Simulated scan of single mutants.
Amino acid sequence: MKAFQLLPGVQQASEGSSMFLVRGGGADQNLLLLDQATVYNANHLFGFISTFNLEAIKHIELYKGGFPARYGGRLSSVLDVKMKEGSSEGFHGEAGIGLITSRLTLEGPIYNKKASFVFSARRTYFDVVRRLIPLKGFDIKYYFYDLNGKVNWHINPKNSLYLSLYTGSDKLDIDEAVQIGLVKTNYQYGMNWGNVTSTLRWNHIFTEQLFVNTSLISTKYDFQIFDKLSREISDDKYRAETDYLSSIRDLSLKTDFDYFASLSTTIRWGGGFTNHRFDPRIIKVGTEPSTATNITNYEWALYGEYESKWTPKLSSNFGIRLNSYHFDQKNSRFVEPRAVVSYQINNSLILKGAYARMSQFTHQLSNTGVGFPTDLWVPATKKVPINLCRY
């Protein structure tokens, strides 16, 4: 993520942060994908460390504008991250201990080299080090972890299944105890946030030139702030609790066809459907029933692409995408043409021109600009219109 911030048109969202902005767009206008699953908060340690564990990553590609028609839902950029598939030749692993995090990665075959797996874990140990420092009447605990896993099964020469899983979370807990005379007060507060994604992909090969990927994708992002107050005066006890929660849940089904017409020409087409459920505010006070704001909407898309390399130096990608957004019994449809032409002048210089129209149906409400988990994701409504962009 730090390396991407050095590219032309990309800059840091704030000093030291792993978040990035592309050509004047907001951080929420970048689409972050982990094996096709959307990652809504890709940061640990309040934005200073990325959730993407390099030990589990095979390939990363950043589109900074004029991205292909198979991508949609954001205006500025697409960061497409693909996980490793695991070695089918033999079992091996690696581990590392750092000043901030430690990590472990294992991979190997499962059954007769037809299936393999990769598993990677990463965790900080601020909370472990904290126990070595005595603090009277005050305690602070913080840690984050990542777990990545992927299993692939080559059923036969024409069919394969891939299951990708990711979960990661940050946990901050602060305890403070104060005693003044006969009054004992204990105050506990903190916050938790994290992502859970899963992708089940079926790859089917029709011919040497044509294959299809069908994917079922699930994404969940949760954020919680809590505080607990307990006070004891002689035999009288008082206790109060407040929880504030926010969450997003997506369920998607998509199909993508790839046809290699020749060594220099590829044709792609497909579509997908996504159901969004937003819970931007759930408040629970003590034992009272929680008050929740629930918003559900869905969107679907169809696309087609024609990619060709006309000469060793000249290449192009032309496509069109049809987006539809449904909310509050109202449908909004958008036609999005895409065109990118690039010419490689020499080994270090490429000239590129692009035209695109994009639409974005989700927004991030932020008052910090740093990428705190307190930033809320909400769908487009009558009061918060759909973002449209043309360039």
Rank of each mutant, 00 (worst) to 15 (best):
L34Q: 06
R103N: 12
P109M: 01
Y259Q: 03
K184C: 03
Y63V: 04
A356W: 03
Y325I: 05
W153K: 00
G108H: 02
G319A: 04
K64A: 06
S308E: 08
P289W: 07
T296F: 08
L349T: 13
V370W: 11
H363F: 07
F223C: 03
D243W: 14
G181V: 00
L365P: 02
L79T: 11
D258E: 10
G47C: 07
N387S: 15
G25M: 01
K330R: 12
P109H: 00
S262A: 06
R201C: 03
A177Q: 08
L132A: 11
R201T: 10
K184M: 02
A13M: 07
T51N: 10
V22I: 14
D173F: 13
Y125H: 10
V341P: 00
L135F: 04
N186D: 11
V151D: 00
S198Y: 04
E232D: 02
G304L: 01
A292Q: 15
A56I: 02
L216C: 03
R249L: 12
D222A: 05
V22N: 07
I283T: 09
H44F: 15
D328V: 06
L253K: 05
K150Y: 01
T362G: 00
E55S: 14
N186Q: 13
G96A: 10
N195E: 15
L106H: 06
S230E: 13
G371L: 11
D28P: 01
F273S: 01
N294Q: 09
K114D: 06
F48P: 01
I133L: 12
Q29F: 07
H154S: 03
G9S: 03
W269A: 07
N323Q: 14
H44W: 11
S308D: 12
G24A: 07
F318T: 02
G16R: 14
G194F: 08
N297T: 12
F211Q: 11
Q344K: 15
Y298G: 02
N30Q: 09
L251N: 15
H276K: 12
L251G: 05
V212I: 13
K150A: 07
K309E: 09
D235G: 01
L351A: 15
